[in-house]
Amino acid sequence: MPVGPLLRAVATDALTDDETDAVVSLADVSKTYELGGTVTALDAVSLSLPDGSYTAVMGPSGSGKSTLLNLVGGLDTPTSGTVEVDGKRLGDLSEPERADVRGRTVGFVFQTFNLMPRLTAAENVALPLAFQGVDPAERIDRAKQLLDSVGLGDRYDHHPPELSGGQRQRVAIARALASEPAILLADEPTGNVDTDTGEQVMGLLQEVNDEGRTILLVTHERAIAEHADRIVHVRDGEITGIEEV
């Protein structure tokens, strides 16, 4: 979708206005990799996410949308620019502090679910709490509540290989919410499930957003992106436009 210069200018103005209550803000963020030559994954991207917003980042594969998500989640560090999440500049944090951001401030949902194969559903959901030193009984209780809320009340002790794709993704969403994060980061959450199940997953994300959590969703599918309040289009490492839905 080509975006004209006018729309782009409007988008930039909107960013400036939102900065005060932004829970995530990226300023001039670039990310380059050295792979035989210099590959630019993100090129001076600025973006802010207001608290409680639901944003989809859309673009073809290789556009840099996943890199953007990983930078916000503290899994990756920018080559230049600053990433601020929930008032913390990630670039200034030590490794354990960034781990803490991943564990408490954000929650990840991945295309491939990324559950621990040897842990039960409840243990998977409780895992982020284990790294925060939450008492075992307490975290399993919390995990069971979360599994109940995503409709898996009868699957506590199942291991991931015993669950369907949709069930696994629901476990993953429950896990992402375990430590009550302010922001949920979802990377192609419907990419490995059928359309109906995908709709269920998107319904769950909508509920999460309705509870007041900020969602940043990465997808290449228009239909999925339209669940969000606004769509940020990226291509070749640059934001090419922002569209309110």
């Binding site: 989640g73 781990a99 803490d100 564990g103 990840f108 990324n114 895992l127 790294f131």
Partner: peptide, 16 residues
């Protein structure tokens, strides 16, 4: 390796 990545994504420190 993948499990290590998962653990780090959900908040495991290098030390953990």
């Amino acid at each position: 390796t993948r499990e290590i990545g998962i653990m780090k994504a959900v908040g495991a420190r290098n030390r953990d």
